[in-house]
Design a protein around this nucleic acid. Structure first.
Length: 270
DNA sequence: CTGAGATCCTGGGGGC
DNA sequence: TGCCCCCAGGATCTCA
């Protein structure tokens, strides 16, 4: 599942591969994937656009286009955004192909077809409901304390809520809660300020380390060059049912919380 | 506002 | 071995 570190890695990789290129043609093989404003033809509108930048907001990769429009891509669970040279084979489930004037390509593949590429007009609000970026200076321990105040929601569910803090998915929610020593089911309002500070630090730490290691490849994630990340090799609890906790050696358990598999240590997460 | 549940898909795992 | 069934999971929408 591409979360913040994976999308950040993809965006950085794409920036080095496709910025400056001009779109010659667009092939839409599965129309529902390509979203455009009413009356705008996705493929036709993109033709002739030059890629002037690639960025990330939350779990979205954003191609900034020369007209001022943006191409906002969500990968959901199995989406892949890969820069390809001319003639390179496509991944299975490739639904949209951007062909550049130098004949290289940008492929969007998604086996489960939950992802989207959305063409956004200049100034069109598409991210109004997104919360704060956890790696921005605006994400402070004090602000995080205020965000959790009075909330009865299990802390893990709150971490997954993109209207609060963006970019955290199931993997990094589990890992950050383990690092902070917090039980995933704890109501947010029941956490002490000290625990919230630990969690704030753990979120920033886990996401930063995962970016340094170019993301976590547990399912389908690959970066813009088609390469796997490295953070799956240093996970502490995610997917580790029955394995010893790296901190206290108790076996890792799996429960379901907010409809998601949740791995944690009964002994040292309180 | 808040939280719960349904929805979308398909590969892969479990059961027999 | 083969086949069928069922489920995970992010974001969005509906409903209470």
């Amino acid at each position: 599942m591409p979360e913040l570190p994976e999308v950040e890695t993809i965006a950085r990789g794409l920036a080095g591969r496709i910025v400056g290129k001009t779109i010659a043609s667009v092939e839409v093989r599965l129309p529902k994937i390509a979203v455009a404003p009413a009356g705008v033809d996705f493929a036709r509108a993109l033709r002739g656009e030059r890629i002037v930048g690639v960025s990330r907001r939350a779990k979205y990769a954003i191609l900034e286009l020369s007209s001022g429009r943006s191409l906002v891509t969500s990968l959901r669970m199995t989406g892949r955004l890969v820069a390809q040279e001319s003639g390179a084979p496509s991944y299975r489930g490739t639904h949209i192909v951007l062909r550049f004037t130098d004949r290289s390509r940008l492929d969007f593949a998604d086996l489960r077809t939950f992802g989207r590429m959305r063409l956004v007009e200049p100034g069109e609000p598409w991210d109004e409901r997104l919360g704060i970026e956890p790696l921005s200076s605006g994400f402070t321990p004090e602000g995080f304390i205020g965000m959790l105040a009075g909330r009865t929601t299990p802390i893990k569910a709150l971490l997954l809520d993109q209207q609060r803090v963006v970019g955290i998915g199931n993997i990094y929610a589990c890992e950050a809660l383990w690092e902070a020593g917090i039980r995933p089911s704890r109501p947010a309002k029941a956490l002490t300020k000290a625990a919230i500070r630990r969690l704030h630090h753990a979120i920033v730490d886990v996401l930063s380390r995962a970016i340094d290691m170019r993301g976590t490849s547990v399912d389908d994630y690959v970066d813009a060059d088609g390469l796997e990340g490295g953070f799956q090799n240093v996970l502490s609890v995610y997917g580790k049912l029955g394995e010893p906790c790296p901190r206290c050696a108790s076996p890792i358990v799996r429960t379901v919380l907010a409809q998601r598999g949740t791995w944690w240590c009964r002994s040292c997460q309180r």
